[in-house]
Nucleic acid binder design. Structure first.
Lengths: 202, 202, 202, 202
DNA sequence: CATGAATGAGAATTCATTCAT
DNA sequence: AATGAATGAATTCTCATTCAT
């Protein structure tokens, strides 16, 4: 949706890496300048301000989330399978772009800037809506326990994923996040499905 | 465990408030100085460096967590009830000290400092262990589904709680966090318990 | 005298407006670029440096002053009437081009540049000479008190006009400058003329 | 009225000198730092921002003006003599503090800052009021022509003085400003006094 | 126990200018 | 004739920290 130049994309990707490695505070013009080998003011040609870089990052994250959801929704045999594809999709993106995972759920990006914070919240809500829809669909198909609201399920899934990523970051990103997410899914699958007896009756 | 002077405690509490209001970046000597009405260098009497303040905050958080767990473990009719008391206990602390909730799960406190990051991770693991123990106990008593490992349950509970807090922060801390946590628990109770058929047999 | 391209004239006029609105600091390539909708380096086709733009502005001001004086000197029934036409002429130019008035007496244009400062001073002196000539002529014709040197009269007239413009600028250019100048002239006319008794005798 | 520390006074005085020599643009933290031989951030101990320095300068100018007026109003045989003392008083201050004269009427100090601009305007009006009062008193005593409103006289006096200072600045402050002001007063005295015939009659 | 003064490092940002295309 | 990309120098300002008093 948002059109970005090649350079802007490069900057966003490098910013992502910077944040992944040193936290949001690590994203400074000086650091960017060192990575790109160009002077600090040069970046102002591409982003009018630092807030604009952060906004760009947010756009990028949102787009990534959309791609993950859309390709998951396109494939998959049923709702639960599609949910699995969402988590798997995220994991794949993480594998491709290490910075991404570190930042995807990093709410700190909002910083003090209210406008930015609201965008982070919006992104969060958008993802939650998508998850909720998927889980409601699963519940309707009898694949997901319906005695817990779909919105809550979405929360539980999102929360678990975020925590997995948070631990991975704090641990210095040395563990295998993709494997951890796979293990998470294995358990979530069990948690979400209705008890056998119920299913037998149905 | 760690012995702190009264002044140190005051500083930690005020720091917590500062972080809650303006993020980790908001915790500066200048801001502290304004709140306390004393000069900046005065704080160096109480904490040798900013890292020490953050370490103090971490201690404080850990102690708070311990109190919450211990008082929950003391009371409660069964494991699940004790788990409920943990979440309720947190919620109560949050109600008493707004800053606390904002920071309790704020991994950013670690910042760039590796040593600090590890302590955050440790705190996380400690809590997870405690939760895991509680949930294993619940599983043993047939109160918690045993087809999902206790460690995973701990993860799911922690992750959901953290996400609830994160949303509350991003939303500007205007919503009722205590109520939200209560609602979360209601659903978690359903999620955790074994299906009725199983329970009937038991 | 100085030959300027049409584009150069446009730039000068826009620069004048910029200075009028935001002070000399407001005259930047970036601001010009935004107003013209062309890129910053494009301006270097027309002016080799910023100092050249300022020099151009000075030329323009000087030309304007000359036009005002020459058309005043051409018309007018006597020296005092011609002086009135000078002030009136300025006022009319101001009405046509808001930026002009703001800048006409703005010595700040010189900035730190000695060469430019000298040109401002020269412009000032040139105007003073012209005013002095006019007032000397008036004194010779008995229309202007001759017990005060013509050079001083020129100073008083110029100083009053400048102060009027300065107040108008500081007031945010909301008042009616043309009316203020008219009122100024009405009083200056009284101040300049010799006392009736003297005139009667002559 | 406004209480200032010794260091704040030093900074204001040096700022004045800086502005006198290089214009308002010359007042930078770096320049101050070089003059004082202390680091740039050190100045933030004394003035919270650059606008505060400028505000301090404005205070200082206003106080200076008040002192000049009050000591002139205290002495002096009559209104005209007191007016002379005002101009003389200014000239003396100029001699003591070269920067002062350069800045006293430098409206640029306001810069783009509306709040500051308004204070400059206020200062201007205050001085004008004082001059007007003096001249009205002179008119009442028959020492000043009453066929021109006192407010206009104030304008003429102020405008001439300002122009004298402006020329002196543009000329690189090489001429003798005090002498120039004395010469100005000699002529103003003639201009202001009613014609002899009138006076004879009265 | 506390303060005032100062500092080095670093932040975001703006500006005039250059140069290859 | 105009643009996109880049740059060096400068700007205001913040921060954690030190030290003499």
């Amino acid at each position: 949706m948002t059109i970005r130049t090649a350079r802007q994309d490069e900057i966003i990707r490098e910013s992502l890496a910077l944040i992944a490695e040193h936290g949001v505070e690590g994203l400074t013009y000086r650091n960017l300048s060192e990575r790109f080998g160009i002077s600090v003011p040069a970046f102002y040609r591409h982003f009018a301000s630092k807030a604009d870089i952060l906004a760009g990052i947010l756009d990028y994250l949102q787009e990534t989330s959309r791609v993950v959801f859309e390709s998951a929704e396109a494939g998959g045999t049923d709702a639960l399978d599609r949910l699995r594809l969402v988590l798997t999709g995220y994991a794949q993106r993480f594998a491709e772009d290490g910075g991404l995972a570190a930042v995807l759920f990093a709410d700190e990006i909002g910083g003090t800037d209210r406008a930015l914070q609201e965008r982070v919240l919006l992104h969060m809500e958008e993802n939650r809506e998508r998850l909720t829809a998927l889980l409601a669909e699963g519940a309707a198909a009898g694949l997901v326990r319906s005695d817990v609201p779909a919105r809550r399920w979405a929360f539980v899934v999102m929360g678990s994923l975020r925590l997995e990523v948070a631990r991975w970051r704090l641990g210095g990103r040395t563990t295998d996040l993709v494997a951890a997410v796979a293990a998470l899914w294995a358990d979530l699958d069990v948690i979400l499905r209705p008890p056998r007896t119920e299913r037998r009756k149905a």
